[in-house]
Design a protein around this nucleic acid. Structure first.
Lengths: 356, 356
DNA sequence: CTGTTAGCGCATTCAG
DNA sequence: CTGAATGCGCTAACAG
């Protein structure tokens, strides 16, 4: 499996230079090397320099793992994600912004996308790294937050209701209202919704926002106009298709997230419908892909990077033992109007109820 | 710093459940628990079930760190990045796509943005994690690739020349040619360039592509039309400004990367120039931000996700001990035409050399 | 000032 | 079939 390359003198683990080797090379004990590395007092300046020279020459660097095992503090913060996709990587960017200058390093750990395999990925991953590899962790979009964990942990965009765990989330209710109100203002009254996963709080709130916006505008909710998209491309497309093939199809669709909004675009295209001419579409999230669609979609923006930023700030405070000013901040959402929305062909005040 | 919360019975490190505790609870030894965890033979089925029950009840999960220290194999692959920014996170997405089904997990480790602090971040981080935490690593945009490392390591978009290390890179030369040829085809002849960091191979290649494209079109290179932007916003803006204030300014600017193309847009706006009316701009990279600019910029796309994907594929092969078919693949770049480019106001065949 | 000792959590011999 | 002993690389007491 591995050919003999060069002398394998005093090599143990692959190619790694260990403290052992540095000590041997420098003619001192490992503890002395350790002291030099960590700048502890009690080392003759002459010895210090000699050991330092050897360290540099051998290119030694302490193993994060061994150090972690020994120390309780690691100065590393973990970001646990189910997968590296648009949302979580945006959170990561925000986390990186916040970590600067704190002295912490960032480790992002992913289940490799095999999420549905075990629902409890967050708990398992937490156990794997907390207390050893990292001093604290940010959980991105966990589906369960009842992790009974004493350690410093903050959840970002949790998919379940409030819990003991500090969380950072966007205002899903307000956001959904914004999106639907935009459609109402354009003159739409027959507005369909491709809903999210019913088990997730965020999806429930978005649906509630939809209902509330309609109610406030005095538009009755037609239950036939709600189809389940489950936050997911395939189901989203089927849902949009079902809505558009209704005898009296909606003139606008509010999708629970951008992924299903994109799917709605596809469904519309396949049915020969022009967006926004025949159909207006509003999404949710504002992932980068939403701006690149044809047409670019109007969507409700979550301040994703900010969420990552704030989560790290909270976590750092938690690790420092500070009390959190706010344990469940809700960040504002905003509407980003692009080109997937326009007034309906048949405004409500003209020929209501007419077929197309 | 930490108040007494609850009973600290048999607790050692914070809240972590250790194998020790599981063993005690189950009334067996740690080695038996270990055998159960790892499915080793030599455990009575009765004992097995009992221990399994205790493990589930306590929510025990083996510490990644302790396990890493003991085993040479960890089934974890590391992606080492200088910072979590648009480029590296795209690579991460590609890596995540490739990791699915391989059985590996992904850990992204960041220097926390404090890159310039030490140029050798790649070597230091490699030493920290290789051989202990991860089985192999992908280095994203390392500035030095002469890391004499025997372990499985692949570099993505290295900023220096070819090395012993396997690398994955985009075709910077071809890409630059594509960008400049697009401008030439539109009729531009006075084409400026905001160059990159002269110490980086990628920047050198992009400049060479610029020169070659001009040469092939029979357009002499005017050295006054090259200004150093160093891949960076501030310098890029200054460079663009300098070019645009020339007595005879260029009608088009090729920027060495999207960041400086964006800066060029800003500089043009401040000078009251219309893009693409008065000035055409072409960038390089196709980071998401380039599509969101006003106007969206025409740019040379690197297949960033694909680079991440291929790097992981190579790494997995390397870890498996396979021979690599290609150690330095160069991926094709493509031109993405958006709205920052248009024919010049004064085509070359009309009144050549005339002032504006 | 330096080296010896012990142990972090875990997996693997090797005895019993 | 089970448990005691050993060590991965490192740090922190403690002795010398």
């Amino acid at each position: 499996m591995s050919q003999e390359v060069g002398p394998r003198v005093q090599r143990t683990t692959g190619n790694r230079v260990t403290m052992q080797q540095v000590a041997a090379e420098a003619g001192v004990s490992v503890s002395t090397v350790s002291k030099v590395i960590n700048g502890r007092y009690g080392v003759a300046s002459e010895t210090f320099e000699h050991v330092t020279e050897v360290i540099n020459r051998l290119g030694y660097e302490a193993s994060l793992v061994a150090r972690s095992l020994r120390n309780s503090r690691t100065n590393v913060i973990g970001v646990l994600v189910a997968d590296f996709e648009p949302f979580s990587t945006e959170v990561l960017k925000g986390a990186a912004d916040a970590i600067r200058g704190t002295g912490y390093e960032l480790v992002a750990y992913s289940a490799g996308g095999r999420v549905d395999e075990h629902v409890g990925w967050e708990r398992r991953y937490l156990s794997r790294v907390m207390g050893t590899l990292v001093d604290g962790a940010v959980l991105v979009t966990p589906t369960v937050t009842d992790v009974q964990y004493d350690g410093p942990v903050v959840a970002v965009d949790p998919h379940t209701g409030p819990s003991r765990l500090p969380t950072v989330a966007a205002d899903n209710l307000q956001g959904a209202r914004l999106g639907v109100e935009h459609l109402l203002e354009l003159g739409h009254t027959r507005i369909g919704m491709v809903t999210g996963r019913p088990d997730l709080i965020s999806a429930q709130l978005r649906e509630r926002g939809y209902r509330e916006a309609l109610a406030m505008a005095g538009v009755p909710v037609d239950e036939a106009l709600l189809e389940r998209g489950a936050y997911e491309t395939d189901l989203g497309k089927a849902a949009a298709r079902a809505l558009l093939m209704l005898p009296e199809p909606p003139t606008a669709i509010f999708a629970a997230n951008d992924l299903t909004a994109l799917a709605t675009l596809e469904a519309a295209a396949e049915l020969g419908l022009d967006v926004p001419g025949d159909l207006s579409v509003v999404g949710f999230d504002n992932i980068p892909e939403s701006a690149l669609a044809h047409p670019p979609i109007t969507t409700v923006q979550q301040p994703i990077r900010r969420m990552g930023h704030d989560a790290i700030a909270m976590l750092v405070a938690l690790i420092a033992g500070d009390e959190l000013a706010e344990t469940h901040p809700i960040l504002d959402t905003t509407l980003v109007v692009r080109r997937s929305t326009a007034p309906p062909r048949t405004p409500r005040d003209t020929a209501p109820g007419g077929t197309r």
